[in-house]
């Protein structure tokens, strides 16, 4: 069932940028600081290292939110979501 190899203390990073979605190729520590995660994702987006997304030199994720979803029965590994800040009505 599991198609990726991510250890218990790690997480897959999913990023939503400019209406597109992609994954970081490498897993990151699940308890990494939000700032570190934003920096890694920024670097990956700028260099085009995010699977499914084109390189974008103008990336700025300072206002982005970092969500953490632990492993579940359906998804057997931790996930970290990096996404735009949400304007709620």
């Amino acid at each position: 069932m599991q198609a990726v190899n991510i250890r218990a203390q790690e997480a897959r990073v999913n990023v939503t940028w400019n209406g597109h979605n992609g994954d970081l190729v490498d897993a990151v520590p699940y308890n990494a600081a939000d700032g570190d995660i934003r920096d890694w994702v920024t670097e990956a987006l700028r260099s085009g290292a995010v699977v499914g997304m084109r390189a974008d030199r103008g990336v700025n994720l300072q206002d982005f939110v970092v969500d953490r979803f632990p492993a579940s029965r359906q998804v057997p590994y931790n996930r970290i979501f990096v996404r735009p800040k949400t304007p709620f009505g």
Binding site: G19, R83, P84
Partner: peptide, 16 residues
């Protein structure tokens, strides 16, 4: 903000 997201990230927004 709707178009900022995809099906992957929408659940996290709802959670927030």
């Amino acid at each position: 903000g709707d178009t900022y997201f995809t099906l992957e990230s929408l659940p996290a927004v709802i959670q927030q």
